[in-house]
Simulated assay, not measured.
Amino acid sequence: MTFTQTLREENQDIFHAIFDHPFVDGIGKGEVPAESIKHYIKADFEYLNAFMRVYGIALAKSQNRDDINFFHEKIQFILNSEIHPHHNFCDYVGVDYEGLQGYPLPPSADHYIKHMMHHAQTGGLGEILSALLPCPWTYLEIGRELMSTFNPTSDHPFYPWISFYADERTAATTLEMRERLDAIAADSSKHEQLKMKDAFRKSCQLELAFWEMAYTCEEWPESVVSR
């Protein structure tokens, strides 16, 4: 069993909790509250900006051109391709994409970004990839799960979103990240592998928290006036 196969097996519980989340289930049913969609896009736009910055840190830590090119290509994928599912959500709620950009991060998204940045700043490429991988991997499996369960057609309101994440290009991106992490893990110590597993597990948990954050329109608590 490869390192990433072990990661997937050890985090089966979180993956299934994500599949069962009401926001994800609502995408399959074509029924998600508009305010939850807006909250998701506001947070995810900033999250993906941070995701690209983490790729940039990984690129700066790369020791060869293959790794530099690898992370450069991943940045381009987010910049040029991952805006399409956002546009599908925007069309659903009838809001221009630009109108949902530049908002402060809700607590769970803020935590997630700082978690990734911590591993980017203090860890090697294995830790960084472990912190990043749950995002594309869970979305790939969400897309495939929704395709299998709901069999959406082109008239489904979220067909572009579902088909994007179930697509072979998304699968290829995830597979490339898995293969790169497997290669790094094979040359890593047990201690380093444990740090990778911890980064991966927490990112899976924060993926679940992100869906909950969006669905409940999570905000920071109001300041408490001392008495």
Rank of each mutant, 00 (worst) to 15 (best):
P85R: 07
G99I: 06
P104L: 10
I68G: 00
I113T: 13
H86K: 04
E141Q: 14
H119W: 15
K61R: 10
S108A: 06
A50E: 05
L79E: 07
K114A: 10
Q63T: 15
L140W: 06
L48V: 14
S130H: 00
T122S: 11
L125I: 08
W137I: 05
F71S: 12
L59K: 06
I142K: 02
N49K: 14
G123R: 04
T122L: 05
K42E: 14
C90P: 05
I113R: 06
R65E: 14
Y103G: 11
K38Q: 14
M117L: 15
D67R: 06
L125M: 01
N69L: 02
N49M: 13
C90L: 06
I57F: 07
H87I: 15
A109T: 15
F45T: 07
F71P: 10
S62W: 04
G123Y: 04
A50Y: 07
L79R: 08
G126K: 01
E73T: 06
I68R: 00
W137M: 10
A120I: 11
L129K: 01
N80K: 08
H39N: 11
K74W: 01
L129M: 01
C135L: 03
L48N: 09
Y103M: 12
N64V: 02
R144D: 04
D67F: 08
K114L: 09
L100M: 15
T138W: 03
N64I: 04
H72A: 14
E127D: 09
A131D: 02
R53P: 00
Y103N: 13
